[in-house]
Design a protein around this nucleic acid. Structure first.
Length: 594
RNA sequence: GGGCACGUAGCUCAGUCCGGAUUAGAGCGUCGGACUUCUAAUCCGACGGUCGUGGGUUCAAAUCCCAUCGUGCCCGCCA
């Protein structure tokens, strides 16, 4: 409804301006501050004042007089306040908002018939997922959810780097060393914790072993690289044995978030199907191609990139960026748009990829790259190879443990008599613990650096998931008390918004309804910007509004008029859908009770 | 050294892309209040800010431009 209202306001304003012979290129439409009764406003009078030769407030009056609110559906009146034009919502706007929000899919935008592939995480299958990388699946999953809500047909991909030197080293180490050679037992009983020890052992060996032995090892590693490049089936099988096992373990870890994928796309796929070779030969034909130091490179200085992009080594093997070009052309063939979530340390590579794609004749506008900065420890970077860092599994375990403690202490000193059993406590501990971790990460602008600290990451107060989750639980509590099953379709249980919105006339009710009304527009804009943190900001504002309503407007009290009760119940249903769907975009669970 | 990002209350952050409502918003922390009433993981109040710094553009700058300082990331025939 908000989107329709905005369209209507734009139309009316544009009409009035052209009647008055004012330019219509900038309508100055904005959202007014909280204490103003309108839903939309315009500051256009400021800019027109010079041209009109009258002060801004007079121009505003002139424009307002030109708009006939009776002809508008969603606007009841246009009022000026100094230089500002305020558009007040009509009952029709409020009624339609309420009705729309009683659908459990509220906030989901119409199908755009456009496909988009969201690639995220894509961590090298070298070992356990650590917290330094955890921002990627959390942001990536939220971006994918957001685009789905915004009406795109979304596929989620994990690009598996199974052809790089790292995997050749890993494969060699896995085949060379035995359990006896390894010093530490696995930190956790899962396959990637077991196998990463070979990877670490191999890297340590390459750093410390006598020169002759290192050379012999390097020869074996090179042989693996060459085998992959040649598409040799046996080599591929050997590497796959390591890759598939480690990736399997990492996938289990990511499922805890939960972050799930439609497809794991292996790098070797683009070597085996010949598309990397094809890319190489097309790159060689470019004007930017140079052959320097026995390697083929792209000189991108004319495109604002100082560093050459090497796409073929002197030993004729391809590099990660070369294969990634083939990978992206494959994405462009299969999807309308592509979004990649990657760490800011890949920024240079990202711009090289984009430029090279253009040079190869692709439309790089199809690709958008979301960059986030890494999560570091107070003492420095996390590294799988060196074994420094906090494992995501440990963070999630700790989060759940702390949440469980929290539930139990609250259980002791709470006044209401709940019937929370063991299963509920465990469910809440998971929802709150994991929700808090996700929310903490997804609510911040990705470009901001984060230093990981346990207490900060696991703070359940602050502006955190539980605060918003609690609102959802409160909605469910009211619905349940009214004899409605919150887990079932609410509209089907009589809450279809067919009530008298006039009865929702307190400031708290109007504010809440208007906030609910903005949700689809927030989804729309956040999706355009690929910024899920906008949804998190919205959930907080929504929760504030709901709590004000909760405080001031009893729904089920004995002295509440039945018609008011019905209207407020519909508002609660609308609130429930809004907060549940917003949380679902963020990938945070919406607890029925807590 | 060069490129890019970030710098808003003691702390963690919205707002910056797209400049506007004479008092720049939250939360945490501190202090003081509210549970016989639909869940107090909530709410209300107080205290707290030269929006890194200096210039500029504009009727209007946290927001745009220039400079400068601080922090992070990148500058591999690694990924």
């Amino acid at each position: 409804m908000f989107l329709s209202l905005r369209a209507e306001v734009e139309g009316a304003l544009e009409g009035a301006l052209s009647t008055l012979d004012f330019p219509t290129d900038d309508l100055g439409i904005e959202e007014p501050p909280e204490d103003v009764a309108s839903v939309l406003a315009s500051s256009v009078a400021f800019r027109l004042a010079g041209e009109a030769g009258t002060p801004p407030p007079a121009v505003a009056d002139e424009i307002a007089a030109e708009i006939d609110a009776d002809e508008l559906t969603y606007v009841s009146a246009v009022r000026t306040q100094g230089p500002y034009l305020n558009f007040l919502p009509s009952d029709a706007y409020r009624a339609e908002t309420l009705e729309a929000a009683t659908a459990d899919s509220y906030g989901a935008l119409p199908d755009r018939e456009e496909s988009v592939v969201v690639e995220h995480t894509s961590a090298n299958p070298t070992g356990p997922v650590h917290v330094g990388r955890a921002r990627n699946p959390i942001i990536g999953d939220a971006v994918a959810n957001l685009l789905e809500y915004a009406g795109y047909d979304v596929d989620r991909h994990y690009y598996v780097n199974d052809a790089g030197r790292q995997m050749a080293v890993f494969t060699w180490a896995y085949e060379t060393f035995d359990e006896d050679d390894l010093e530490e037992p696995p930190e956790r009983d899962r396959i990637e914790y077991d196998l990463v020890r070979y990877y670490r052992k191999g890297n340590a060996y390459l750093e410390n072993a006598p020169e002759a032995e290192v050379e012999a090892a390097e020869a074996e590693i090179d042989a693996i690289m060459q085998g992959l490049e040649a598409g040799d089936e046996e080599t591929y099988e050997r590497v796959s044995e390591v890759v598939d096992q480690v990736l399997g373990g990492m996938t289990e870890c990511l499922e805890r978030l939960p972050a799930e994928f439609d497809e794991f796309v292996k790098e070797t796929r683009f070597m085996r199907d010949g598309s990397t070779d094809d890319v190489v030969s097309r790159l060689k034909d470019l004007d930017e191609a140079v052959y320097e130091d026995e390697a083929w490179q792209l000189d991108l200085t004319d495109h604002g990139i100082e560093k050459n992009l090497v796409f073929l080594r002197s030993d004729d093997t391809s590099l990660y960026p070369t294969r990634d070009l083939a990978h992206h052309e494959w994405k462009f063939d299969n999807y309308d748009r592509a979004v990649t979530v990657l760490g800011e340390d890949h920024k240079l590579q990202a711009s090289q990829l984009r430029t090279a794609l253009e040079l190869l004749g692709n439309d790089a506008d199809q690709l958008r790259q979301v960059l986030y900065s890494y999560v570091n420890l107070p003492e420095g970077k996390m590294s799988t190879r060196r074994g420094t860092g906090v494992d995501l599994d440990d963070l999630l375990d700790e989060a759940i443990d702390r949440a469980r403690d929290e539930v139990e202490t609250r259980l002791d000193d709470r006044i209401r008599d709940d019937e929370l059993d063991e299963t509920d406590v465990e469910r809440i501990a998971h929802q709150v613990g994991i929700g808090a971790v996700r929310y903490d990460i997804v609510a911040k602008q990705p470009t901001k650096a984060i230093t990981f600290e346990w207490d900060r990451a696991l703070d359940f107060e602050a502006q955190s998931a539980p605060y918003v989750q609690y609102v959802h639980a409160r909605c469910c509590g009211i619905l349940e008390a009214a004899g409605i099953d919150p887990d079932d379709d609410l509209a089907g249980q009589g809450l279809d918004g067919d009530v008298d919105v006039d009865l929702l006339d307190s400031a708290a009710e109007r504010d809440l309804l208007e906030t609910i009304g903005r949700f689809p527009a927030v989804v729309d804009e956040a999706a355009d910007d690929l910024e899920p943190h906008q949804i998190a900001t919205y959930t907080r504002e929504f929760a504030d509004r709901f709590n004000a309503f909760y405080r001031e407007c009893p729904v089920l009290g004995d002295d509440v008029d039945p018609a008011v009760r019905d209207a407020r119940l519909a508002l609660v249903a609308a609130s429930k859908h809004t907060v549940a769907n917003a949380l679902s975009i963020l990938g945070v669970a919406a607890p029925r009770s807590m």
